[in-house]
């Protein structure tokens, strides 16, 4: 059994992002592993059991700085890592094409990805990869377990959940509720430095990225401003009836 987990390096979601002074880009100070991807790594570790041991390989696309998120996953317990070298930020469809090419080399039984990357918030890559590979998919998954040779996945949908059974090979994207990633102990962090990180280039994978969706402009979303404080429930009801006119 082999599980591949795709990781993205994203701005820290707890730090507000800012538009650069020239308006062309978004500046985000701190950089971290996408929290949904960290959950995907944890899910891979939990799916690997003595009865069904899995080799867990983590993949990231980016420059040398992406090694940080790969080391993080290795310290959590992943076995080895692959970094696909590029200085550019790829669109979801190109990311999916790169990962498909990696799948050609690695032949995984299961792909795990975060349901979306913090920042771009698109939530497309997993579905695109599953489509390109022609394999089954379960997205926004909040519970995952083996049952015989099938993977049982509970998905978060509007108003409740939906449960699917997936034949392998398959692809799963993870929701926040799936698990709480483990705390990394210092010895594991040190041990992760000795785990291998292989580097591949887009040319080796035969991928030429193409920009399909071009940014025209960025603007700050209109901010809400503080209204008034009321001192009592009757005053609140009065305001809602006569000023806001949302109550009769």
């Amino acid at each position: 059994m082999k599980i591949l987990v795709a990781l993205k390096r994203v701005p820290d979601y707890s730090v507000p992002a800012r538009i650069t002074p020239d308006g062309s880009d978004i500046e985000a100070n701190k950089i971290a592993i996408n929290p949904f991807d960290e959950i995907a790594v944890e899910a891979a570790l939990r799916l690997s059991t003595p009865q069904r041991p899995a080799e867990i390989v983590v993949v990231s696309i980016g420059n040398l700085a992406s090694q940080e998120v790969l080391r993080h996953a290795l310290a959590m317990g992943a076995d080895r890592a692959i970094r696909v070298e590029t200085e550019n930020s790829l669109e979801p469809l190109d990311v999916a094409k790169v990962l498909k090419a990696v799948a050609g080399w690695e032949q995984p039984d299961l792909w795990l990805l975060g349901k979306q990357a913090v920042g771009a918030d698109a939530g497309q890559t997993g579905q695109m990869l599953a489509g390109l590979l022609g394999i089954g998919q379960a997205t926004f998954v909040s519970a995952l377990e083996w049952q015989g040779n099938e993977l049982i996945a509970r998905r978060e949908v509007e108003g409740g959940t939906e449960t699917l059974a997936l034949k392998l090979p398959a692809l799963v994207t993870t929701d926040l509720q799936l698990n709480t990633p483990r705390y990394i102990k210092l010895p594991n962090l040190i041990a992760a430095k000795r785990k291998p990180i292989e580097t591949l280039t887009l040319a080796e994978l035969g991928i030429t990225p193409r920009q399909r969706i071009q940014r025209i402009k960025l603007e700050n979303a209109p901010a809400r401003t503080a209204g008034i404080k009321v001192s009592s429930v009757p005053e609140l009801l009065e305001k809602l009836r006569t000023d806001a006119k949302v109550l009769s």
Partner: peptide, 19 residues
Amino acid sequence: APYARNALARAAALLDVGM
């Protein structure tokens, strides 16, 4: 919403277009 997000991105990849 979840069902559309699930299927449209898959369809986009199969049609080789962005979304």
